[in-house]
Design a protein around this nucleic acid. Structure first.
Lengths: 190, 190
DNA sequence: GGACCTCCCTAACGGTCGTTAGTCTCTAAG
DNA sequence: CTTAGAGACTAACGACCGTTAGGGAGGTCC
């Protein structure tokens, strides 16, 4: 991919996150790139190409971040690192994460199907961590794995709406992790 | 509001949730109502009126559901009921909840400001429950209230993406609540 | 029975949408 | 010195956008 095309993708990520896919016109993109509208077609075949690129980049980033979690660590530790990894991607690539989480649904046909499959696979990888934790008795054996994973994913997927780059994302993730692991109930309560 | 206007609002909620605000044209709305496009202007002054109505209806529904939580119950019980209340609204008015959670940002000017204020107020009411729980020692005194409330709100706000009407929403909410309150850690782990 | 009111109609507005066609310029490789 | 490709241009396409103007049918109220 040429440098110019990469630049266009960055602009698309930013505008799609800011104004939505449908709310962003090719004229907007062209203006940001400093070019006339039809000139964009030297780089793309359609507007949807850009959405696909950004959404795919998001999927790749989240999967890659999860890949970096050490395979042999205890399940509980892997959950903690997975949460850190996810929030780090959101904070570090907020535009891409926003498109990945909210704008992907404007994809159509095979691309949409392909994206949904990647998304499902990511969720499954998260669920596997909880499954592993229960099976290895690191997590309580009566834990509802589906509910626990859904809670994790809810926190992860909602983050793009409030998380802003700059803060200590790891500490943030660890605070989430602490509440999830140890609960909220008071010490004295039976 | 006339019956016809109310019918239009229902159609708008459904289409905005399904295709997005910007992805829904007045022609789409008119066709669903069985009317020519300009006839819509007998009922509305602009397309944004419909978005405002649906978003406001969502805000009212969530606040009303929270109002129904008994004031004098223990904080922990109020948190459980608040989660039930929120998920019940999402399941019972999925279109409205979707617009409330995702499409509101296409509001502009004062309406947008007003909506954001209502949204903030709702979040504050949730945070207050956790604050109350900590102050009354129902929740652990070292609990990070902001993190706990954010976790609650993440689960609540993400629900529109996966929750479908029909199931036992109360049981679902109680499963979330159980994980949040008691955590996930195994009994044997120190 | 005339005056309103609700509801819907046709016709048309100016503007914007994503996209296509065809051409020019600059630069780097053979 | 020629050729090829990258990158951008102007002009224009048909379709659709939200909105406005103006009028007509059917019912209700004084």
């Amino acid at each position: 991919m040429s440098a110019r095309r990469a630049e266009l993708t960055r602009i698309a990520a930013r505008l799609f996150a800011e104004k939505g896919y449908q709310g962003t016109s090719l004229a907007d993109l062209a203006e940001e790139l400093g070019v006339q509208k039809p000139s964009l077609y030297h780089h793309i075949a359609s507007k949807e190409d850009l959405l696909w690129d950004v959404a795919s980049e998001g999927a790749a980033a989240f999967h890659a971040a999860l890949d970096a979690v050490p395979e042999r660590a205890p399940a509980v530790e892997k959950i903690r690192l997975a949460l850190r990894a996810h929030l780090a991607v959101v904070a570090g690539q907020l535009d891409v994460a926003t498109v990945f989480t909210r704008e992907w649904r404007h994809l159509e046909g095979e691309r949409r199907d392909g994206f949904v499959a990647e998304r499902r696979r990511y969720e499954e990888r998260i669920r596997d961590l909880f499954r592993e934790g229960v099976e290895g008795s690191e997590l309580r054996t009566d834990l509802d794995v589906a509910t626990a994973a859904l809670l994790f994913l809810s926190a992860a997927n909602w983050a793009y709406t409030w998380l802003r780059p700059g803060g200590d994302t790891d500490a943030l993730a660890d605070r989430f992790f602490a509440v999830l692991l140890d609960g909220m109930r008071g010490y004295a309560t039976p």
